[in-house]
């Protein structure tokens, strides 16, 4: 599904190399997790894949189902099936959550040459999906993420994911700022979306989230590279011993 090959990225504004040769492949239907200490480049990887400005790819490639991602605009990547659940979802005053979602869903359908959803069909769909994430009508009416609690913002990210039905979902520290109950709710939302044709890349600091969203493969990232790859037990090792052991071992 997602294939990242020798990806090197530096910040545009300063001459600072963040990713130093990332290699990663997430097959269809699989959940991969990336863990790593602060500053290892996890969030940068998610931003570069989704097309945020400010980063320069100096070497390497990233493909989604064989198609080169890095040449596409952010909206084209989204239409191709990529989705990033933001670590810090952006507040957009003045744009209603519902309007935003309908515009997004229909823009993607249009880009893929599909018919736009009618207002009635859209409403039916969103009500159904919102219900399972415990998102009430008021949250749908309010401006995007404005005045939402941390948990509400993350649930709203998952709602967008559910509505847009992407093939490749990247979750950037979706557990940050969530209490245990909120994390469970979000994890349930994610698990409900797991399917054969959909892959996940879950970026997190802590093993906790991975108790709820069980990964197939765990990667450890440090200093702009994947330094170790293993099964779910790798996450437990991090939880028990921290990153220090792994870093020393690799060095």
């Amino acid at each position: 599904m997602l294939k990242i090959n020798n990806l090197h990225v530096k910040l545009e504004e300063e001459d600072k190399q963040i990713l130093k040769g990332v290699n990663l492949e997430v097959p269809a239907g699989k959940v991969h997790a990336i863990m790593g200490p602060n500053g290892s480049g996890k969030s940068t990887l998610s931003y570069v894949l989704s097309g945020k400005d400010g980063y320069e790819v100096t070497e390497g490639s990233a493909t989604l189902e064989g198609a080169e991602l890095l040449d596409l605009d952010p909206e084209e990547r989204a239409a191709a099936g990529l989705f990033l659940a933001f670590q810090y979802p952006v507040e957009i005053p003045g744009v209603g959550n519902m309007t935003f979602l309908r515009t997004a869903v229909n823009a993607q359908r249009k880009a893929r040459g599909e018919d736009e959803l009618s207002a009635a069909d859209f409403l039916k769909l969103i009500r159904e999906k919102a219900k399972s994430l415990k998102i009430d009508a008021d949250m749908l009416k309010r401006p995007v993420n404005v005045g939402f609690s941390g948990g509400e913002k993350k649930r709203n990210e998952i709602l967008q994911m559910a509505m847009l039905e992407p093939k490749m979902c990247i979750l950037d520290e979706t557990d940050s700022g969530l209490d245990v109950d909120a994390m469970k709710l979000v994890a349930e939302g994610v698990n409900a979306l797991r399917s054969e044709g959909r892959s996940f890349l879950v970026i997190t600091h802590y093993q906790r989230l991975l108790d709820h969203i069980k990964p197939d493969v765990v990667h450890i990232m440090a200093d702009g590279r994947i330094i170790k790859t293993g099964g779910p037990e790798l996450a437990l090792e991090v939880e028990n011993n921290g990153y220090a052991d792994i870093l020393t071992e690799v060095a």
């Binding site: 097309g51 909206e75 990547r77 979802p89 952006v90 744009v95 935003f100 515009t103 997004a104």
Partner: peptide, 28 residues
């Protein structure tokens, strides 16, 4: 820019996203 990227990352083309944000600005 942050809001623009957020909208684009959801598949809303740049021009449309700009219009949406401009109308939001005028809403008050």
């Amino acid at each position: 820019d942050e809001a623009l990227f957020y909208l684009s990352s959801r598949g809303i083309p740049n021009a449309e996203a700009q219009d949406l944000l401009t109308l939001a600005f005028l809403a008050e």
